[in-house]
Every structure is written in structure tokens, then in C-alpha cells.
């Protein structure tokens, strides 16, 4: 689905990483960990085409991102659900409309009426549908972002520090939702510092943990 082959990325003259390879296969579950500034968010952005590799090849659903135009990237993103650490909502729209944004931009608004209520119930936000994003708590925003990420039934879900701003109980709830998605056959890639979250996930799913450090991507050891 998403393949990185000998990828390098340079930012501001400094090489963030080089010769990095990774494959996200259908139904896989990956954690991406590493120190702050190691390039986790950059790596995720390469995976959904927001950034283009300096060298090497990133293929999204078989297409080389360097050869894709902006509209092709946009169409590919409809098959990838992304949960940002800061959620990124349109603050002037109610939460339900924010969750339905991927359907709206795809011209499939009528499906929102069909799925939205069930999806909001699934993430436990049925009562907050009409609230604006700034009125929601951190955990509610993260769950709303997850709902938005999956409303198009994407093949891949990518989450960047999804539990960074929420308490442990809410982290567990969010993890449960991501594990459920993985069990539906979605590939999941989560960037996180939260080792407890990784340990909790490994009790529920066969997750692979990758550590990004010093520009290299390595499989994490048994300490996790």
C-alpha cells in the first residue's frame, strides 16, 4: 500500500534521514517511535504525500509520489485517514461537519447522513455533534479526528501522537478504536512517544515497533 524505498529527506540543508525503507502492508499495525526531532512527523508526511522525498522513492498505492500531481495526491489521501496531533479542524464548523469533511470534498455528502450517527456513536461523541471544535476537550477532539480519518473507510490510518494531549483512560479508548480498525483490515501506523501505549497495544494486536533515531529506522527490541 505504502512503500518507502531508500528514502532520504533534507530540510534546511540538514539531512533528517537517509536510505530509509519501510512497507505498510494491508492489515499491518506499526508503531513509529523515537526521540523528539528524529523526523517521525516528517516520515508520516512522506507516507501521505504532504512532503516529497529528497531522494529515493515513496509509492502510495503503487504510484511514485514524485510523479503525482496535486490532484492525484488529493485522491490518494482519500484512501488514507490521517489523525494529526493538533487535530486540525475547521473551527467555524460543528464537529459533525468536520468529521464529514472527507465526504464533502469527495462529493459524497449524502453518505454522511448514512454513516455519521453510527460513527459518532462509535467514538462516543453522539452528544457533541453540534459543538464547535474549540468547545471540545482534548480527548473529544482526538476521537473526532479519528472519526474523520475513518469516515471514508480508508485502507490506511496514520496517526501522529494521537494520545499526546489526553489522559491514560482516553488513550486506552483511542487505542481500542485503532485496534478495531486494524481488525477490519486497515493498515495502521502510529507515531508516538508513549511506550505504555505501545505495550498496551501489543497485548491486543501483533504490532511492529519501528524506532527512528539518528536518521536510521530500526525494529525496536524486546524491551517493548
Amino acid at each position: 500500500m505504502i512503500e518507502l524505498e531508500r528514502v532520504a529527506y533534507t530540510y534546511g540543508g540538514a539531512e533528517l534521514f537517509a536510505d530509509l525503507s519501510m512497507t505498510l502492508a494491508p492489515g499491518s499495525f506499526h508503531f513509529l517511535t523515537g526521540p523528539s526531532g528524529a523526523g517521525k512527523t516528517t516520515l508520516l508526511k512522506l507516507c501521505y504525500g504532504e512532503l516529497i522525498a529528497t531522494s529515493g522513492m515513496v509509492r502510495i498505492f503503487g504510484q511514485n509520489t514524485r510523479e503525482m500531481d496535486r490532484d492525484q495526491i488529493a485522491l490518494a489521501r482519500r484512501r488514507i485517514g490521517v489523525v494529526h496531533q493538533d487535530c486540525q479542524f475547521l473551527d467555524h464548523l460543528p464537529m459533525a461537519e468536520n468529521v464529514a469533511l472527507p465526504l464533502t470534498v469527495s462529493g459524497r455528502q449524502e453518505e454522511a447522513d448514512e454513516y455519521l450517527a453510527d460513527l459518532l456513536a462509535w467514538v462516543g461523541l453522539s452528544g457533541q455533534a453540534s459543538q464547535l471544535p474549540p468547545q471540545l476537550s482534548g480527548g473529544e477532539r482526538q476521537r473526532a479526528a479519528l472519526a474523520r480519518a475513518v469516515i471514508m473507510s480508508p485502507e490506511v490510518v496514520i496517526a501522529d501522537e494521537p494520545t499526546g494531549n489526553i489522559d491514560w483512560e482516553m488513550s486506552q479508548r483511542l487505542l481500542t478504536l485503532l485496534v478495531e480498525l486494524n481488525k477490519m483490515g486497515k493498515a495502521v501506523l502510529i507515531a508516538t512517544h508513549d511506550l505504555n501505549l505501545i505495550r498496551a497495544a501489543k497485548t491486543q494486536v501483533a504490532a511492529r515497533v519501528l524506532r527512528l533515531r539518528g536518521g536510521q529506522l530500526q525494529a525496536a527490541g524486546s524491551e517493548l
Partner: peptide, 16 residues
């Protein structure tokens, strides 16, 4: 610009 960023994140084309 934030609106545009979010629209792009969720798969909006330039024409949209």
C-alpha cells in the same frame, strides 16, 4: 491558510 491545509488533509483537490 489553515482552512486550505485542512481541506488538503482530507483530500480536497485544488479545483474544489
Amino acid at each position: 491558510s489553515q482552512v486550505i491545509r485542512v481541506m488538503r488533509l482530507v483530500g480536497a483537490t485544488d479545483a474544489f
